[in-house]
């Protein structure tokens, strides 16, 4: 009896949370944009969410490319196929690792700070006082943060892939002695713009939507206490990471399976 009761409660809370998230996003985004007012807010958030994430993205992209090249080389050289190192690294970065790892890093670096910031605004009643002054906090606080994350993440994923390929070039060509011409030309003959690069970009756009939506919603919906903020931040990182990995499988199955 008790357990059925709890099942019902949790079902209702899951769906009402989902509903609140959709309503929040709709009311934050569906209005006529005011570029003059919105532009400085957006630039400020792009700086916080995008530019400040550059270092972690570049460093981890470089190391992931390097380690891919190292691992790939030791396996491929057994079959005398080390010329395929370029396409192997490029395809795995463009199709999978670029969008996914960039989204995970983004959730940890930027998503958590978005949630904590908005949560603290709510706890210190800044959001309510904005409403008192007839400023819609959804438009003033939520919308620029959402758009900033949505714009920044595909760019970060592209930078991640490019730096990763350069890192693989460093290890594969400069240290392990794969021929530089073969590295690029094999890559160019194997990688297709429409299939590999565009699908990777679509993936990162989807992930950007999911991660920033979760981060913004968790902050906006959190319990206005210090404990509530910490719980909201944790669940932002956990839920967006899980959702990114799950969605990645679904998207890959749709795009690349045959």
């Amino acid at each position: 009896m008790e357990s059925i009761l709890r099942l019902g409660q949790s079902t209702v809370s899951v769906f009402s949370g989902l509903g609140r998230a959709v309503i929040m996003l709709m009311s934050a985004l569906l209005h006529v944009p005011n570029f003059k007012k919105g532009y400085p807010l957006l630039v400020k958030q792009l700086y916080a969410v995008g530019s400040l994430s550059l270092i972690i993205i570049v460093v981890s992209g470089g190391f992931i490319g390097m380690v891919l090249a190292l691992q790939g080389y030791t396996i491929l050289v057994d079959y005398g196929a080390e010329a395929s190192l370029g396409p192997m690294v490029a395809l795995s970065l463009l199709r999978e690792l670029g969008p996914v790892v960039a989204a995970l890093l983004f959730a940890g670096r930027a998503g958590s700070s978005l949630t904590a910031e908005i949560g603290l605004m709510k706890a210190t009643e800044q959001l309510s006082s904005m409403e008192m002054m007839a400023v819609d906090p959804l438009r003033r606080v939520i919308a620029p943060r959402f758009w900033a994350g949505f714009i920044a993440m595909p760019l970060l994923a592209a930078i991640f892939s490019m730096v990763g390929i350069l890192g693989a070039h460093l290890v594969g060509v400069d240290w392990l002695g794969v021929d530089s011409g073969t590295f690029w030309s094999m890559m160019q003959s194997q990688v297709e713009f429409g299939k590999d690069i565009m699908n990777g970009m679509i993936k990162s756009v989807v992930f950007a939507f999911v991660v920033t939506w979760i981060a913004v919603y968790k902050g906006y919906d959190c319990e206005p206490t210090s404990e509530g903020i910490s719980r909201a931040t944790t669940s932002t990182v956990v839920q967006s990471s899980l959702l990114v990995l799950g969605l990645d499988f679904v998207l890959t199955a749709l795009m690349f399976a045959r």
Binding site: S51, L54, I197
Partner: peptide, 30 residues
């Protein structure tokens, strides 16, 4: 108001991102 420095860094970031996309499509996928 946003300071010029922040605007500059954001511009740099966006330019870098677009350059990465361009490099991927031209250099990686011929």
């Amino acid at each position: 108001m946003v300071s010029k420095k922040v605007e500059f860094i954001v511009g740099l970031f966006v330019a870098l991102g677009l350059a990465a996309i361009l490099a991927l499509s031209l250099k990686v996928a011929d």
